[in-house]
């Protein structure tokens, strides 16, 4: 039903008056919106040009500054001189970032004052207590490239967390050197590698001390190599030795594990009794830990044996380490 016409005639609504704009901000915004939307070709071109200019200027800045963010040969030599002077047995150098392995070429391999003592250069991705034991190391010299792209802070934090004292950082050009004194250094009574020359090897394996890759990292370990498609069990019997409070070891498959379907079961025997077992396999983690509490054993010398049982062909071998903790 239609409504009757309004007897007072049509009504008109006046437009809402614009808000007061004493600063001109609303007008500016209206004009900007009218200019930018819908976007015109020239606006897109301007946006693209701005991105090109920003990327180009950044690229020039990056190329111009990169060499200055990296150490020079004199920086490396100066650091080598400091380390040659100040390191002592039980020290190691850690690299941050870990790829900075030019250090191996520059730094002394042994302490100049004590040639019988080596100065290990470590290039691990992590130094957290659960990740690396750092056996035999009391002090770690962190050698950093602080301005190199990629960042180096995490490693310093991890070392700081397990250190009682730190000294530095000492800035030498584009390198920094910080010394961390480990709060609880892991100083073994003996290691498998130390006792290997006196050990008896039973079974078909060739056993030798080597530095091998496990999970892409170097491991100074005892390698048991097995020939043939159906390798048998090998046993490494160590001479009687004191055990301390614990036996701590690691196992891993040596070398490139691609195409490796086999694994190895490693049993740790003390006086003929199995006290621990760990599996070396291609799956993560590559470097597996076993720890055995020996604090309740009588404080005499005990015979420790490692029994390695491969499940299939392992031509590259199994990497083993074992230490007795005091």
């Amino acid at each position: 039903m239609n409504n009757p016409p309004d007897p007072h005639g049509p009504t008109y609504r006046l437009p809402t008056p614009p808000p007061p704009d004493p600063t001109g901000w609303y007008e500016l915004r209206r004009r900007a919106r009218a200019t930018l939307w819908p976007p015109q070709d020239a606006a897109w071109a301007g946006l693209f040009a701005a991105a090109v200019v920003a990327a180009g200027v950044y690229g020039i800045w990056f190329q111009a500054t990169l060499p200055g963010r990296l150490p020079s040969s004199s920086d490396w030599k100066a650091v080598a001189a400091v380390l040659a002077r100040d390191t002592r047995p039980g020290d190691a150098v850690a690299l941050a970032p870990p790829w900075a392995e030019r250090a191996r070429e520059i730094l002394p391999e042994r302490l100049p004052t004590r040639p019988e003592a080596s100065l290990p250069v470590l290039a691990y991705p992590s130094y957290a207590e659960g990740a690396e034991d750092l056996a035999g190391i009391r002090r770690v010299w962190l050698l950093s490239l602080p301005d190199a792209p990629g960042g180096t802070g995490r490693i310093a934090a991890e070392l700081q967390a397990r250190s009682g004292a730190a000294e530095g950082p000492l800035r030498i050009g584009q390198l920094t050197l910080t010394r961390f004194d480990l709060r609880s250094p892991l100083l073994p009574l003996w290691s498998l590698a130390d006792l290997l020359p006196a050990a008896r090897i039973q079974g078909p394996a060739v056993v030798a001390r080597e530095i091998r890759e496990v999970g892409f990292l170097p491991r100074d370990c005892v390698v048991a190599r097995f020939a043939g498609p159906h390798p048998g069990t090998a046993v490494v019997r160590l001479p009687p030795a004191p055990l301390g409070v614990a036996l701590r070891g690691h196992v891993g498959l040596a070398g490139d594990v691609s195409g490796t379907g086999a694994s190895a079961s490693v049993r740790v025997m003390v006086d003929g009794v199995e006290l621990g077992r760990v599996e070396a396999a291609a799956s993560a983690p590559a470097w597996r830990t076993v720890q055995i509490d020996t604090s309740r054993l009588p404080p005499a010398r005990h015979e420790v044996a490692l029994e390695v049982v491969p499940s299939g062909p392992l031509p590259r071998g199994v990497c083993l380490d074992l230490v007795a903790l005091p």
Binding site: L66, P67, L70, P71, A100, R102, R104, E105, L107, E109, P120, V121, L145, A148, E210, I211, R212, E213, F216, P218, A254, G255, D256, R316
Partner: peptide
């Protein structure tokens, strides 16, 4: 990588005598 570490074992050195580096 194992090739490098096998070299360390075989040569009884861990220190290279020369190298090629790109930005370290």
């Amino acid at each position: 990588r194992d090739r490098e570490f096998r070299t360390w074992t075989e040569f009884h050195v861990t220190r290279p005598v020369a190298g090629a580096y790109l930005d370290e």
